[in-house]
Each structure stands twice: as C-alpha cells, then as structure tokens.
C-alpha cells in the first residue's frame, strides 16, 4: 500500500538521481526482475525504480542538499570567475558580461596574491614534514607503551577538538613580546617577537597548526600501525635489526598508505588557512608576511566587493592544491609501487 501511494510523487523527486544511474551503474535490480517476470511462480511486478523505490524518497533530502549547497555552488564559482560580477541587492537583475580570463590575470599579477602563495609554500615546507615525522614517531611510541595509553591519547587529541579561536588566545599570550616563551628564552628571544617578525610569523603559524592538528594524525598512524604484523618485527629482531632499522624498514613502509593520506590532509589544511593569519598575526601581518590565499579571498571578495576576482583566486588555489597533491602522491606513495 505504501509503495503505491508513494510512487506518484516519487517519480518527480527521483528524476534527478535516477537519470544518470541508467548510464553510470549497471542497474542491478532492473534486468533481474524482468527475467523473473516470465516465470509463473513469482508474480512480481515490473519495478523500474528497484525493489524499494522508497529509498529514493529517503535519499532525496541528502541529494537535494548536495546539489544545492555543494554541486551548484561549485559550478557557480567557476562561472563567477569568468564573468564581471559584483554584489547586488536580492532580486535585482544586472548584466554580468563574460570577461574571459581577465579575473585570472588580475589575480595572478597581484603581488599580494603572489606573496600569499609563497607564504603557503613556506607553511607547507615546515608543516607537512613536521606533521608526518612527529605524528609517526609519537604514534609509534604510543603503540609500544602499555601504561597511561588513554591519558596520552586524550592529551594529544584535545587541541584538535578545541576551537581554533580559543587556543589562538593562549598562543597570543604565550608568544607576545614579553610572553612566557620569550621570558624562558631570555636573551635568545627574537626581536621583533615571533608574531610580528616578518621572518618568523609564517613559521610560527605553521608550528601552531602542526601542534593543533597533530593529535588527529597521530591517531591515524596509530590505526595504520595495527595493520603491520608483529611477526615482521620479531623476525627482524632475530636477524639482529636494531630499533632504528626496524623503524625504517618495517614501520615506515608499512604505514605508507597512511602517509599519503596524512600529507594530503595536511596540505589541504594549509591551503584552507584563514583563522590563524586573521587572528594570530592580526590580518596576515606584519606587512603581508603571513597572508593566506583564503584570507585574501575574504579581503578581496567580501570586504572590497570583488567576488569575481576572489572566485578566480579560489579556482587557482584548488588547482594548485591538486597539483601539489599529485606531486606528493608520487613522492610519498610512488616508492611503494617500485618495491
């Protein structure tokens, strides 16, 4: 009964996801049912939408959400980046002429943008290797220790679950001119201080993000370490391989798939940097030494009212991240193929 009553409105809702299914997935339910139709003992109806077409209704809110909030804006971003676009009041119709690559030329020739990409590069050069090495070493130690395991796990994960805005408050306090870090360092304290020093601002941001995210990556490696069979270590130690040899020849290759994931996620985090340059270094200071592309997107797109330029910057950024991810995949994961 429910099937019948649901069928009417269903077809309309289903129209969107069902159409590509015919081409994409080899439909599982369709042909099988058609074959059964001939046999006399099973009196099943022909059901073009599958055994439980109500599944389409169940999936509809999620599918609509993805189409409206993710898929459509994705295309819209690219469209905006190729047109002259400015903010208007709701409902106002204005002409938005096609301008080709003009916005991209504006973005790429802007020294502030170039600086922000350089900053992100500095960020990644510090953050990505530091994250991979520290999280692997700590995960490896966590895997061996027996006592207080839960305590360590929790303490590493706490920064990850805490709002960046909250922990930035305490980092500002720690790293200010006469903060605790500088009073510990005494005469070794950098002048100008960490966050207002154009050479140290970006490395400090990179250090902060490494610290904040490390717990997540430690647990990721911890899960990967469980997949390495204990026998490998046993036979290595019988053959006299010391701790270092074991770590380098068993652990590191054993967690290579996780390393690919960790480098990728750390890179994406770096590309998304906004809160840190906005708050930690007071808007990408000093003098643009810690601006990030997303911060410039906010500045150019929303503060200065050039959403077309900001959209082009977003597209360039995503393409850049994809390229870096491909290179990293070759470097980190590639060796696994050769072995």
């Amino acid at each position: 009964m429910t099937l019948h009553s649901a069928n009417g409105p269903l077809r309309r809702v289903a129209a969107v996801p069902a159409a590509p299914a015919e081409a994409g997935t080899p439909s599982s339910a369709g042909p099988r049912l058609r074959r059964k139709r001939g046999s006399p003992e099973i009196k099943q109806k022909f059901r073009p939408l599958g055994k439980q077409p109500l599944g389409l209704l169940f999936s509809a809110p999620y599918v609509l959400f993805i189409l409206a909030v993710l898929a459509y804006p994705l295309g819209y971003a690219v469209w905006i980046s190729f047109h002259k676009f400015f903010f208007t009041a709701p409902g106002v119709q204005v002409d938005r002429p096609f301008v080709g690559l003009d916005n991209y030329v504006t973005v790429l020739s802007d020294p502030a943008v170039q600086r922000s990409f350089l900053n992100i590069l500095v960020f990644m050069v510090i953050n990505v290797p530091l994250t991979v090495v520290l999280s692997l070493v700590l995960a490896n130690a966590l895997n061996r220790v027996i006592r207080a395991k839960t305590f360590f796990r929790v303490s590493y994960y706490v920064p990850y679950v805490t709002a960046s805005v909250a922990v930035i408050g305490v980092w500002l306090f720690l790293f200010q001119q006469n903060g605790l870090v500088n009073s510990l360092l005494g005469p070794l304290a950098p002048n100008p201080s960490w966050l207002v020093n154009s050479w140290l601002a970006m490395p400090t941001v990179a250090l902060y993000v490494t610290w904040k995210q490390l717990g997540f990556f430690i647990l990721l490696y911890l899960a990967a370490l469980q997949n390495i069979p204990e026998e490998l270590y046993e036979s290595a130690s019988v053959d006299g391989g010391n701790k270092w040899v074991q770590f380098w020849n068993i652990t590191v290759p054993g967690v290579r798939p996780a390393s690919v994931l960790v480098t990728l996620l750390a890179t994406i985090t770096g590309a998304n940097l906004f809160t840190e340059p906005y708050l930690l270094t007071g808007g990408g200071g000093p003098d643009g030494a810690s601006t990030s592309p997303v911060f410039l997107m906010y500045q150019k797109g929303i503060l200065q009212g050039n959403p077309d330029v900001a959209a082009a910057l977003g597209v360039v950024l995503v393409i850049g991240v994809l390229l870096i991810a491909l290179i990293q995949n070759r470097l980190v994961g590639g060796r696994a193929g050769e072995e």
């Binding site: 055994k51 994705l74 998304n272 977003g314």
Partner: peptide, 30 residues
C-alpha cells in the same frame, strides 16, 4: 534498500568529502 540510483547517491557521498570549502566560499556567500 534497493532502488535505482543507489550507486550514484553513494558515489556522491564519497565525492562530496573531497570538495574544498574555499572554492565554495564566494558562491555560497553570494
């Protein structure tokens, strides 16, 4: 449940997790 388009919905769910938010920032704001 078995219904037409299930594979597409599943693929969507996996793909969505790879969409970078910074690209959506401007269009979503608009």
């Amino acid at each position: 449940m078995q219904f037409r388009g299930r594979g597409v919905v599943f693929a969507m769910m996996l793909l969505v997790q790879m969409i970078p938010f910074q690209l959506l920032l401007i269009p979503l704001y608009v």
